[in-house]
């Protein structure tokens, strides 16, 4: 087990954003978190990254409480890929990916060959070697997302957190990123934890899925168990249409726009 959340609770004032959340993630697992807006997905993510402090409960990483890790040590365990790249000061792709090496640097040493090699590997894995000297501002949204993933890979983490990594991409670029994540997982066996609004993506690309609603866990199970109308209704409070994909036979869902809240 690489990560364990126990009775994890977070609140702002009197408002509970997460309430007694329990789950475990095994090493090498592909784990997704789904739920409607305001369900607490991002809050849960920030608690795992230790960007927020829980009101109660705990997160343990490799059996050890998250709070016992130094920030740098945590950076060697967990890397984070945001939804999109914020405005950057015209760094080149390589300069940006190199920043992922920070948790491996000591205050009195400069960039070593090992760091350069890790950057090369990350660029190669994301197929961004040819873009190494390009200014980030000249890249498309999909390419920028690959650079963010490359920087996270350069951290050489054990756990890769992805916060809706395809939220602002067109369907074809989304597919490119999904395939890239598959490749990364098959080559590195890295544990992936992805927050997504795309139920089909959650079911197709993950081993287990956690469903959140109003800050509570309402589902934890396999893709097959997720793709049931009552389960999805319980997570989202809305009805879905389910059908089989004509090519691969997987269940796929569409929101049932005609139906109201359950």
């Amino acid at each position: 087990m690489i990560l364990e959340a126990k009775a994890l609770t977070y609140a702002v004032g009197d408002k509970l954003l997460l309430d007694q959340v329990d789950f475990q993630i095994q090493a090498g697992e592909r784990f997704a978190i789904v739920g409607p807006n305001g369900a607490g997905k991002t809050t849960l993510f920030k608690l795992i990254c230790r960007l927020l402090k829980p009101r109660a409960g705990s997160v343990r990483l490799d059996q050890k409480p998250l709070a016992e890790y130094s920030r740098k040590a945590l950076g060697r365990w967990i890397a984070y890929v945001p939804q999109a790249m914020a405005r950057q000061d015209h760094f080149t792709v390589r300069e940006f990916v190199l920043m992922g090496r920070y948790p491996h640097l000591s205050p009195f040493t400069s960039i070593s060959r090992k760091d350069d090699a890790a950057v090369d590997r990350a660029l190669e894995l994301t197929r961004m070697q040819d873009f190494a000297l390009r200014d980030l501002g000249t890249l498309s949204g999909g390419e920028q997302q690959k650079v963010l993933i490359a920087a996270a890979l350069a951290q050489e983490p054990r756990l890769l957190l992805l916060d809706e990594p395809t939220a602002f991409l067109d369907p074809f670029q989304q597919e490119q990123i999904h395939q890239l994540l598959e490749t990364i997982h098959s080559q590195t066996r890295m544990t992936l934890l992805e927050v997504t609004h795309d139920v089909n993506r959650a079911a197709l690309g993950h081993d287990r899925i956690l469903g959140l609603r109003d800050g509570r866990v309402v589902f934890l199970g396999t893709p097959e168990a997720l793709m049931q109308a009552p389960v999805l209704e319980n997570i989202y409070g809305k009805r879905f249409l389910l059908a089989r994909h004509p090519d691969n036979g997987h269940m796929i869902v569409l929101p049932d726009a005609g139906k109201g809240k359950t």
Partner: peptide, 14 residues
């Protein structure tokens, strides 16, 4: 830091 505080923290910067 010039890439944003949240991303910096996630990369191990205190």
């Amino acid at each position: 830091l010039s890439t944003g505080e949240e991303l910096s923290q996630a990369r191990g910067l205190d």
